[in-house]
Amino acid sequence: MIRDLKGIYIIWLRDIKRFFRDKARLITGIARPSFYLFILGSGLSSAFGMFGGRGGDWYMDFVYPGILGMIIIFTSLFSAVSIVWDREFGFLKEILVAPISRTSIVIGKALSGSTLSLFQGIIMLFFAPLLRIQLNFFMIIKICLLILLTSFALTSFGILIASRMRTMQGFHMIMNFIIMPMFFLSGAMFPLKDLPKWLEYLVNINPLSYSIDAIRYVMLEDKIFLAHPLLINISVISIFAVTMITLAIFVFNITD
């Protein structure tokens, strides 16, 4: 047991070290959120502003949690690429032949992905005052916990896919195929109320909708944004997280 915890820690530590060492990743990690927020966010809110009223400002508030969600989904799912990367560069063998369980490898990877995702999320939170969104200490803690839970689920999902992938190209193809619909159907860019039936159905089966809904509620404290009760949101994300990590552990444990 202690051995497994230690294994988790070592796997986690290496990924974190690598992230902060690779300056290009670090810089894009910081720059990307601001691009999305200021270019996409500002562009869209002025589009809404054209229709008159308070639409523009209102939309900027609305889309901010959505873009936070976008950062989380990208970082988490793509952090699992490190498994494919390690396989391609041989380091995975060093890990697989070590006397630690496969389960601790998966958990270590899931935690490192979540940590990196949280790191990016926190960078994003620094922009909140610029949008005149007031966040107090407890809100920030709640948001961070939601980010961690969501990232853990998504990274596990990424690992599940990565553990059967042999090439980087294959992984990227599948990931793009998954990320785009998942993001667009999450309610990140539009409210989840009064949608056409078919769209509402798709949005409801997307676990990411529930976490963006929850983050948005905590952040803006405005019930008009809440599509589901908070308890339901948290339960759905938790069930998704447990399912994904279990599946990832199971698949990763299969030896040829």
């Binding site: 290496r14 070290k17 690598r18 060492r21 560069f89 041989g90 380091f91 063998k93 060093e94």
Partner: peptide
Amino acid sequence: DPSLDDWL
């Protein structure tokens, strides 16, 4: 085949 972590 090589199995070191180049970034460490």
